[in-house]
Structure formats: C-alpha cells, structure tokens
Amino acid sequence: MRLPSINRSFIVLAVIVLFLILVPILGSRSTVNLVAEMAAVLAIALMWNLLAGFGGMVFMGFQVFVGIGGYAVFMAANGFQVLPFPFILLSAALCALTALAIMPILSRLQGAQFAIASWVISEVVRLTVFQTSVLGGGGGISLTAMRSVPRELRMYGTYGSAALVLIVALVVCVFLMRSRVGLALRAIRDNATAAEAMGIDLRRTQRLVMMIAAAVAGAGGGAYYMLALQIGPGTAFSMNWMAITLFVVILGGIGTLEGPIVGVVVYFLLRETLSDLGSVYFILLGLMAILVTLLFPKGAWGGLRQLIGQDLLPIRRNPSESKG
C-alpha cells in the first residue's frame, strides 16, 4: 500500500524518534554513548548533504561549524560553570552568524572554487583559535563545567542533546526539502540561470540554507564535544571531519535523505570492527569512497531503494496529492 508521502515521512520519523527514546532505556552505557556519537555525526552529515547534495554547494570546510559549535559550548559552560547542555543553542546561533558573515565571499563562487574557499575559511578559523590563548591555544581546553555533574546526568544529558539535534536535523531536512525553499534549492543546483529566470532569489535561498545547515551542524559539534569532554584546534577543525562526513554521505547516497542514515550505520560498523588497522583503515575508506562515486553514484541507499520500491522520507510531492 502506498501512503501519501508526507504521512510516510511522519511514520518513519516517528520510528526513528522511538528508537532514540528506547536506546537509553534498554541500552548499556557504552551503547548510549555510541548512539549519541552516531547521532551527532549523522546530524552533521545530513546538513552537509543538504548543502552539497541538494544545493550543489560543496562546502569542503564544514569542520569550521563543528569546531565553532564545540568551542561555544566549552567556553560558555566553563565561563559560568553550569550545565553545558543548553549551550548547543548558542553553538547554533554562532554558526548561523558565521555562515551569514562568510556568504559574501562564497556566494559568487561555484564548484571547485567554492570548495577551496570554504576550506581556506576553515583554516583561517583554525589558525586563529590556535593563536588565541583565551581559547586554550594549540593545547585546547577541557569541559571543566562537566566535572561536578553526576555521571548519570552527564551521560543522559549528552545523549539527549545529541538525539535532539539529530531529530531537529531530520525534521528540518524533510520539511525544508518539501517547501518552496527546497524546490528552489534543487532548481539552482540543476541550473542556476534557469532558476533565476523563473524568479528564484539565488543568493537569498543559498544564504538561508547555509545558515540553517551551519546552525544544526554547529549544535551537532557542540553535542559531539560534550561527549569528548576535550577540544583542541587540531581535532575540532580537522579535515578528518570532512573525511567522515563525505564517507557517510557518499557511501549512503548523496542527495537523498535516507542515504546518510544508511551511511552512518555502515561507517560506525566499519569503525568498530576495522579501526585497529590504523592507516590501512583510512586507505580502505578512501578506496570505498572513490569506488562508490565512480561505480554506484546513488550509494547504498540507491540499491536498498530498489528493493523497497519507495522512498522512506519522500521529498518529492506526487502530482496526484496536490490535486486532491
């Protein structure tokens, strides 16, 4: 039976929320921490996919938002010595402002130039943090505010923050892509000139989506580093974030909502089983990313979708629905 597509999205979203609620009730301590980490990584990957897969903006410096989001939580919570969890809102706000500030540079660039300029921006932030002693300089800072927090509260609070960010990321993706903005975004990706001729405000659409993606990714970074309890410029602004994000998105299927969800499961399965291999593990990841891009551009979800026969989080509206 085929349900109207928006109802199908609601059901799938509800199943994911139910899963996220059941994990802390049924799961062990290590499972809860692992799922929290997966949730933060998935939220970040979903947002990168929103920019690159749906918007054609290949933002290769996406770690800038992860890092700023993490540092925002650490500085605010340490400064006031209070519970860090609410400060992921601060992470989101700071990252949205950062996106707004860098859009004048990026908005006229495309493709490779956009990719490199965004990377350079991330490097500028990394090097600045490295030189700023208030932010801990090259050595980084610990989340000292977490020391007085009881262990249970620390675990469930961090998990809750990460899960909430993921739910927001999923809801934002589904509703944004079904809205006029999502339609405009894909029109720009497919043909910017034609989209502008149809009356789409190119810069406004891209700026809005960039701010949303930055905000959610920043909150994801905040949640991730609450789990890590330690942040430094070398790791928070590392290209490794880009490698993980790309792997999750490409392997799962770029330009789909289901793809990164599949990708994050595959990525963590591989990491939990193969990461002992060290650099060989990264060589394998790189090889898989290249092979999937060349041979299976639709990713793992592309294959699964053929088996299932329908989208689980549909973003295309059926013509018949708008008639009825």
Partner: peptide, 14 residues
C-alpha cells in the same frame, strides 16, 4: 562538479 572533488579527496586520504 562534484564527482572530481569527491574522488580526488578520497585519493588525498589514501
């Protein structure tokens, strides 16, 4: 524009 960027990034990691 995307596939060359993704493939050469993979190459860089390798």
């Amino acid at each position: 524009e995307m596939p060359p960027i993704l493939v050469t990034f993979g190459l860089s990691i390798i």
